[in-house]
Each structure stands twice: as structure tokens, then as C-alpha cells.
Amino acid sequence: MNIFRLAGDMTHLASVLVLLLKIHTIKSCAGVSLKTQELYALVFATRYLDIVTDFISVYNTVMKLIFLGSSFSIVWYIRHHRVVRRSYDKDQDTFRHYLLMIPCMLLALFVHEKFTFKEVMWTFSLYLEAVAILPQLVLLQRTRNIDNLTGQYVFLLGAYRGLYIFNWIYRYFTEPHFVHWITWIAGVVQTLLYADFFYYYFESWKNNVRLQLPA
């Protein structure tokens, strides 16, 4: 564990807590893409298959349970909670996210480290996480008015993988043979997808104006 990875995990944890806070406290999911939440639930379900077979540390297991529990409960809230689901904008959240799942699964079947079920599913989760934010970014462009909590959620979610890139750089220089192109490329693509959001997020923060993405 290094400071970059700890900061990344804490930033990731903060992003899910911000979203849970928003949904649970103000009972609203306005501006939140259910499609992205469903993709993230799938990302964690396919990435943490080893949670019952390989114990790494208490921290690792607890964090996996938090990410699995929070992502599935957020999906439940938006789909089934009698108050929250009324604020879900299904007419705007129209990204066909299975068009993201299929290419990621195909790519994982061809580009992976080992052709085993767990390894292919783990690789699928890496590719899927890289593009999982797309429905959310599309929804933000459409809804225009981005409330603070949703903006903070997207920012923290994007920042965590950026911190992981620093973690991989650190590990590359401190651990022999630490080379993982698949993970690195997926992580860089994921972070780059947030580039324009980060730009407008910092601009709105610097000029102290409401965050608005260009149409």
C-alpha cells in the first residue's frame, strides 16, 4: 500500500458516500445516471469474485464489501425506493449501456493475462469501468443544471483512478517487473474520459459559478 493508492481508495470511498448521502438524505437522484450505477455494480461484481476465495487483508475485504454494498444499494434506491425513483429522469438517461458491456466482454475474451474465468471477468471489469461513466457524462450534458453533490460525486469518481495511475507509477519504480499494460491503458483511458469534465469543474470552482457543461 502506498499513499497514492490509499488516497485513491479514500477518494473512491468519498464518491460513493457523497452519492449515498445525496440519495438517502434528500431522497433525490436527480442528475444521477442509473445506467452508470448499474455498470458500476457489474464492475464490482465481476472484479471482486475473489472476495470469498482469496483473503488479502481486512482493509481489502471491508472496502470490497463497501463498494459492492453501496453500488447495489444505489441501484436499488433509484429503481425501487418509492420516493427516490420519482426523481429518476429515465427519459434523459437513455445511453444504451449494453453497447458498452458487449465490446468490453469481447475485448476481455481476446485481450487478457490468462484465459481463466476469473481473469477474463476481472479484465472485463477493468474495461467496463473505463467506460462506465459515459452514461453519467451524457446525462450531465443533457440536464445542464448540475447540483453540487452530483458534480462532487463525478469529480471524486474521476479523481480516484487518476490517483491510481500515480500508484502504478510508484509501484513501477519500487517493485521489480511491475508492468501491467492492460490495467494501465484502461486506467488512463478512464481518467482521460473525465478530462473535459475536470476542465469545466475547475473553471466553475475558480470562477465560483455553477457547473455547466457545454451542450
Binding site: M1, R5, D9, H12, D50, D54, I56, S57, N60, M63, K64, F67, E113, K114, E119, W122, Y164, N167, E175, H177, F178, V179, H180, I182, T183
Partner: peptide, 10 residues
Amino acid sequence: SSNQDLKDEL
């Protein structure tokens, strides 16, 4: 280097 040393990451 197998992905094993990535499995301690989240």
C-alpha cells in the same frame, strides 16, 4: 509478472 500483484488493489 502476473496480475497477481494487482489483486491486492481494489
